[in-house]
Design a protein around this nucleic acid. Sequence first.
RNA 1: GACUCGAUAGCUCAGCUGGUAGAGCAUAACACUUUUAAUGUUAGGGUCCUGGGUUCGAGCCCCAGUCGAGUCACCA
Length: 569
Amino acid sequence: MLSEQEIQRREALNRLRQLGYEPYPASEFSVTHTAEEILNGFETNPDAFQSVRLAGRIMSKRIMGKAAFSDLKDHTGRVQLYFNRDEICAGEDKTAYNEVYKKLTDIGDFLGVQGEVFKTRMGEISVLVKEFVFLSKSLRPLPVVKTDADGKVYDAFTDPEQRYRQRYVDLIVNPEVKNTFVTRSQIINSMRSVFNEKGYLEVETPILQPIPGGAAARPFITHHNALDIPLYLRIANELYLKRLIVGGFDGVYEFAKDFRNEGMDRTHNPEFTVMEIYVAYKDYRWMMGFTEQLLETVVKDVNKGETKVTVGDQVIDFKAPFKRVTMTDAIKEHTGIDITGMNEEQLRKACQSLGIETDETMGKAKLIDEIFGEKCEKNYIQPTFITDYPKEMSPLCKRHRDNPDLTERFELMVNGKELANAYSELNDPIDQRERFEEQLALSEKGDDEAMFIDHDFLRALEYGMPPAAGLGIGIDRLTMFLTNNSSIQEVLFFPQMRPEKKPVLPTVDDYLALGISEAWAEHVMKVYPTPKAMLELKPTQVHQTLNGFRKKQKLDLPALQLEDVSSWF
RNA sequence: GACUCGAUAGCUCAGCUGGUAGAGCAUAACACUUUUAAUGUUAGGGUCCUGGGUUCGAGCCCCAGUCGAGUCACCA
């Protein structure tokens, strides 16, 4: 069902064609200026704007008799158009103004205009339109958001569901939304140029993987028909990037979409973007320095040279160097408990004393992780490196040079959340095999996120991988920080949503499908709004009701026979 | 998964004890030659998310469901 406004727009479309205006022309419309160029350049050099051509979407109309104003929005901003009847219609025929502009042009239509820039009595730089053409007619009304002189916004399009489901509408009417995505793109560009300057190589690795490795998470499963094998959407790309280090690259990085089949909320989307980088002959200490420099550079690039960023009610300073705290010290500081040397049983007790729920499937690593996640994580607002994680939590990470129970790992915590994760990569193939086997044991214990054993990865390590440092940064989270958004949905163009369910209204075809004649179908539909409503009744009753309807409405149709009606059931 | 809140016109939202469904913007018509949330007059526009129940009568009350938001849990 079309709404009244949609019908009117379709009628306007037909009328335009009647008048010889093509609403969807094929040819290019060449543009000489953007809205931004006009607004910025006119004051200093008015002569350069005697004749301009620009294109964009009509966002408002204000008509006053023979004169009218519209806002035209292009990719750079909005500029006001001034339509004057006698400027547009040189001769006697005033159709172009009176009908085409005033009646047939709607908010949302794309127009191309040619005209002259001037300043109105109110002092607004505007384009006096001499000619205009349709570039694309809009058939659905846009939400109209208005802003008054004080910057107060009226009738904002704010419903998150509609904004995410119809991001295109969100982008049209909520200009600040665009900035978030521009920043996101700048973040990635800035990182990429840091890496490229160092000579590291941007690479691509498989998204469809026979063994989903490199992280602890549940994967999505799919199936390859020709090979008749299951394939998994990657949960990480770590093992592939390390194979490339084995292959002899000095530094490789990838901006990777990963997929995890887990819950969704305002910080988790089933697909998300991670930047991972691996650099040969480095360790995690070098990587800490590299990470803080990288982030300081990125933040300055997108934040006008400033290192301070406002996130909610916090101000976070990304100026290097960042604080460094070992995980053991962090737990000691926030719980008073020293977990050094504790076994699984002792850790379980420690959890109980802290009021943390545990279960039998949890190994040492999970228990420690629980304590940290529950009691410590939220305290690190300013960028802080948490270092030296227990071995069991980090099956791909090299043992700590000073303590074999720990690993050379750090996570960067910002605003109480993990932003980055890095290791001195484990390159001892025998140790790596043992770690995988421990994971297998965990998996048998019921941990459905424990890692699979990737034999090809082990084979690669057996050929020899140089020592290397690896780093992963959550691009979505970083973007959330740098655009001051508290939900991941705001930094993804198209966040995952439950499918839209359209109420399925019965059509005439549904009635025809039952074998009802074409002549009768539309009338049956009036009596029984759904086929189901009819089929629940007895054929005899339906037969009588319909013939009664025929008589009452004086339908020029032969009366129904009971056999006809029965055949529908 | 638990709890709380929400779903009414194209958009943002009202809706009295349960008694003919409202406003602003948008739309249509008329007026108006520099407006800017343009203005003035008039008009049209609704399966009140879905399905049941209570009732003479449900947008409102009750039950179930769908979708969304928030909080928590889960999830590196």
